[in-house]
């Protein structure tokens, strides 16, 4: 549709080209601001007019966010981020290692494949209650939860990636004189990199979801617990404010994931 849209916008002549695009970009920006302001305005006015027990008010939410920013919001964000990062590091590295090893042993891979696929189809986040039972209210259950979720996503992708490596690539590399270690370093590892990275990219938002889930269920700190506390007190302003913070976190995470991919896979982009 992008092409169709462009062709419609520049229909009055080829000279409209770049200038037309810049103009339409400005129009879009103006439109976005208008929509945003209108939305908040209607919310604010309607809330004041008809009561805001359920909807809170943008102004109240803004004040709450400001209070949190001065207060201990950073502590909560840091807790969630720690859970995510530690879980990503543990689960990611374990997933890569196990994926590479299993992917390189075709017999074990063939035997285990259906079991792995079955496990993969289960939403592991739902293990949260069990983990909280095992590890208590502190950081550990969330880290374990993030680790498990990330492990499986990264493992599965790595495993599929190693299995997909072109056999001819390996054979020709062996003929060049590469030994097993070099073959791993220079062919298997980089070839799996695409898959490992796409596994990590998929895993990033899941890591946030897993950490949030763990915190919603039982936690003293973290963005999820901030949300849960507000919800328990029917503090709607707090609920919306916490959702906004989580949204910001989510946007940050997906932005990091996209950058990571673009940065490390230059050679692949060239193909597209």
């Amino acid at each position: 549709m992008t092409r169709a849209a462009v062709s419609a916008e520049t229909a009055d002549g080829p000279t409209a080209g770049a200038a037309g695009l810049a103009e339409s970009a400005r129009a879009v920006l103006i439109g976005q601001v208008v929509v945003g302001v209108l939305f908040l305005g209607v919310w604010e006015v309607a809330g004041r007019q008809f009561g805001h027990d359920w909807t809170s008010l943008p102004s109240l939410i803004a004040v709450r966010l400001a209070t949190w920013l001065i207060g201990d919001l950073w502590l909560h964000a840091l807790t969630t981020a720690t859970e995510m990062l530690v879980g990503l590091a543990l689960g990611g590295s374990a997933g890569v290692v196990v994926g590479l090893v299993l992917g390189r042993s075709p017999v074990i891979a063939t035997v285990l494949r259906p079991i792995i696929v079955a496990l993969y189809s289960v939403p592991l986040i739902t293990m949260a209650p069990l983990l909280i039972l095992w590890f208590g209210l502190d950081l550990e259950p969330k880290i374990v939860l993030v680790t498990i979720v990330v492990f499986f996503l990264v493992f599965f992708n790595t495993f599929a990636g190693v299995a997909a490596i072109d056999g001819d690539l390996i054979a020709s590399f062996q003929l060049l004189g590469g030994n097993r270690r070099e073959e791993f370093q220079k062919v298997v590892a980089p070839a799996s990199m695409v898959w490992i990275l796409s596994g990590l990219k998929i895993a990033l938002p899941y890591a946030l979801a897993a950490a949030t889930t763990g915190e919603l269920l039982a936690a003293r700190r973290g963005l999820g617990s901030l949300l849960a506390q507000a919800a328990h007190q029917f503090d709607m302003t707090g609920v919306y404010a916490a959702l906004l913070v989580l949204m910001a976190m989510g946007i940050l995470v997906s932005e990091v994931a996209n950058r990571l991919e673009r940065r490390l896979l230059r050679w692949r982009r060239a193909a597209a």
Binding site: A209, L227, F234
Partner: peptide, 14 residues
Amino acid sequence: ALPKIALAPLFIIL
């Protein structure tokens, strides 16, 4: 980008 699960408490209230 918001983890959907975070909406659960809100929906339970609403």
